[in-house]
C-alpha cells in the first residue's frame, strides 16, 4: 500500500463527503471544507486498517473520528460556524451502510431458512456480527468526534 493508494482513497472519500453532504444542504461556500476533512479522516482510517499496523476498523474509526473532530473544531473556530457542519458530512463516507443493510438482509434470510441446520446458524451469525459492527462503528466514530470538543475551541 503506497502513498498513491492513500491519496486516491482520500480523493474518492472527499467526493463522497461532498456528494452525500449535499443532500443535507450545507452552506455551499463550506462544502469543499467538508470534503477535505472527510478525505483526511477516511484516508487515515484506510491507512490504519490496511497498513502493517492492521488496526481494527472500530479503533481506526475512533482515531479517524478524533482527527475529524480536531479539524472540524479548528475550521469552526476560523469560519465562525458550528463544528458539526464539517464533522457530520465528513463522517458520512465512514458510515457502515453495507453492515447496516447486511443486518436486515441476514435477518430476512434467517427467517426464510431457519429450519435449515447448515445455513440458519450462518445467517444468525451474520445478523449478530453485522448489527454489532454497525452500532460500534457509528458509536466510536461519534465518540471520536466528541473528544476534541472538550477543548471548546468552536463557537
Amino acid at each position: 500500500m503506497g502513498i498513491t493508494y492513500i491519496l486516491q482513497d482520500g480523493l474518492f472519500a472527499c467526493l463522497a463527503a461532498i456528494g452525500f453532504g449535499s443532500i443535507s444542504n450545507p452552506p455551499r461556500r463550506l462544502l469543499p471544507w467538508c470534503g477535505i476533512v472527510g478525505a483526511i479522516g477516511h484516508a487515515t482510517r484506510t491507512f490504519l486498517v490496511q497498513s502493517e499496523l492492521h488496526v481494527h476498523i472500530i479503533i481506526a474509526g475512533f482515531i479517524a473520528g478524533v482527527i475529524i473532530g480536531f479539524l472540524s473544531q479548528m475550521l469552526a473556530h476560523r469560519k465562525h460556524c458550528p463544528s458539526e457542519l464539517f464533522s457530520f458530512p465528513a463522517l458520512l463516507p465512514m458510515i457502515p451502510g453495507m453492515y447496516a443493510y447486511g443486518t436486515v438482509q441476514a435477518l430476512i434470510s434467517y427467517l426464510q431458512q431457519h429450519e435449515d441446520p447448515i445455513t440458519a446458524p450462518r445467517y444468525l451469525d451474520l445478523l449478530i456480527y453485522n448489527g454489532t459492527m454497525t452500532l460500534l462503528i457509528i458509536l466510536m466514530l461519534v465518540v471520536g468526534v466528541t473528544v476534541p470538543k472538550t477543548l471548546r475551541l468552536s463557537r
Binding site: D9, F12, A13, L15, A16, A17, I18, G19, F20, S22, I23, H42, P93, M98
Partner: peptide, 17 residues
C-alpha cells in the same frame, strides 16, 4: 446539482469498495 453530486458520491463509494 444534488442528484449529480450524490451520484458522484456513490460512484466514489463503489471505487472505495
Amino acid at each position: 446539482a444534488v442528484i449529480v453530486l450524490t451520484s458522484v458520491a456513490n460512484l466514489s463509494f463503489c471505487e472505495l469498495f
